[in-house]
């Protein structure tokens, strides 16, 4: 029923959620249940004290669909905050890839040379393989993977995008009551939420 003559846009959305069981299932279920796209989704706890996780979602859709996605995310009970990084100003986004390449001879040297150009680090090596670690935006990682694939047998593991707004504003700051050490993990559980 959504108008289809509108352009498809790609947006990066950051979501701060309570780190509780099922919260990721809620977010993913929302996307699958309502037919929204997920191009990339990453999640990790960012605030152990208050049990908060940050989810970064790269999604695409018409402006109306993007607005819906944000509204639907916002009304989930364990969601604290939703930010559309694409809409709210410039942001930086990075992805990490581990790329294993198996080859020998001249191609092996060429792989090392390209890795150097991309500022990828070799973090594992055998006589016939490397594992490179590389961070950058999605385009840079794609380019690197394509080059490696031309030089040997390749296996790739990528994290998906994490992103944060540029500038000095803190959109979703960590909340720390006291700066120093906190108590054991057990007492800082979901009970705070």
């Amino acid at each position: 029923m959504i108008k289809t003559d509108m352009p498809i846009e790609r947006h990066t959305i950051a979501v701060l959620v309570a780190n509780e069981p099922g919260v990721l299932a809620r977010v993913i279920g929302l996307f699958s249940g309502r037919g929204y796209n997920i191009e990339s989704l990453t999640v990790s706890e960012v605030d152990e004290v208050n049990a908060r996780s940050r989810i970064t979602i790269v999604t695409s859709g018409t402006p109306m669909v993007i607005e819906q996605i944000k509204a639907q995310l916002s009304r989930l009970v364990p969601v604290y905050d939703v930010h559309d990084l694409t809409l709210e100003g410039p942001h930086v986004s990075r992805e990490l890839a581990l790329v294993k390449i198996r080859n020998v001879g001249e191609q092996r040297i060429e792989a090392l040379r390209i890795a150097d150009t991309f500022r990828a680090r070799a973090i594992d090596s055998t006589l016939e393989s490397f594992v490179f670690e590389l961070t950058g935006d999605t385009g840079k990682l794609d380019a690197f993977v394509d080059l490696m694939a031309a030089l040997g047998d390749v296996e790739v593991s990528r994290t998906g995008v994490v992103a944060i707004a540029r500038g000095s504003d803190l959109q979703m700051p960590l909340v720390r009551k006291k700066p120093a050490r906190r108590k054991s993990k057990a007492s800082a559980g979901a009970g705070d939420d």
Partner: peptide, 11 residues
Amino acid sequence: IDPSSINKNVA
């Protein structure tokens, strides 16, 4: 009261 109802079907 539900922001997700707004601009869902009709702008």
